[in-house]
Design a protein around this nucleic acid. Structure first.
Lengths: 112, 112
DNA sequence: CTTGTATTTAACAAAGTTGTTATTTAACAT
DNA sequence: ATGTTAAATAACAACTTTGTTAAATACAAG
């Protein structure tokens, strides 16, 4: 659960598309490759990046590998952002309060 | 509001720390630099990455530049993740329903 | 106007990323 | 055994990232 790896993994559109596909259900490497104009090895690497980021799990199934989401890591990323937002909106609340107390006109910035 | 840029910007711990600092309130480049063991130019570049990702705004203030959060971009990232989660948990719900309908024992996978 | 302070830009090196094609490994089918 | 298919690994090129130090820009202040 390393946010560096998680966010870096999410920064690539091919990998986000793979995750979006996996949200619909598990798939094999070949099925994941099909929609993309890039080579198999390139997909294999993307999957490795996603696996190292703990965003997916691979399961051997005969000749195939079955890939599925492992959403804990993505939840970790979401939590970081939400914590950030909590702080930030807290700051705004404090700012609003401060402005109400110290001036007659300001403090009207809306959020959320 | 490009998710590539947003997630890439969030993938660096220095940049996340800068954002965390900014959630507490705006700051100058110098103030943001202080806690980090890296050079000014390195920070300047991190700020550029954050600005290109629309995560911060710079405002000229005499000799200083005042940096503040521009949280819309981060909200965009959060939304992508949440949409993802919505799909995924929808899939699980459908799976649970399916298992309830078609078997006697399965369907107990928890989520959320 | 000269000097100091804040910040950015330039030039560069080291490391990482993302794609390619060729090769390898493993399971399957004949 | 042999050939086929699924997937991973190796070797490589092109590009990007992240840091460095040195120079440039812009404001402030004596």
């Amino acid at each position: 659960m390393n946010l560096d790896h998680t966010f870096a993994a999410l920064a690539d559109p091919t990998r986000r598309a793979i995750l979006a596909r996996l949200a619909l259900g598990e798939a094999t490497v070949g099925e994941l490759s099909a929609p993309f104009p890039i080579s198999g090895p390139a997909i294999s690497r993307h999957l490795r990046v996603l696996e190292e980021a703990a965003l997916i799990e691979r399961q051997k199934d005969g000749q195939h590998r079955r890939i599925r989401l492992a959403p804990a890591a993505m939840a970790g990323a979401a939590e970081w952002i939400e914590a950030q937002r909590a702080y930030w909106s807290g700051t705004l609340d404090r700012l609003n309060e401060h402005l109400k107390k110290t001036s007659q006109d300001g403090g009207g910035t809306t959020h959320d």
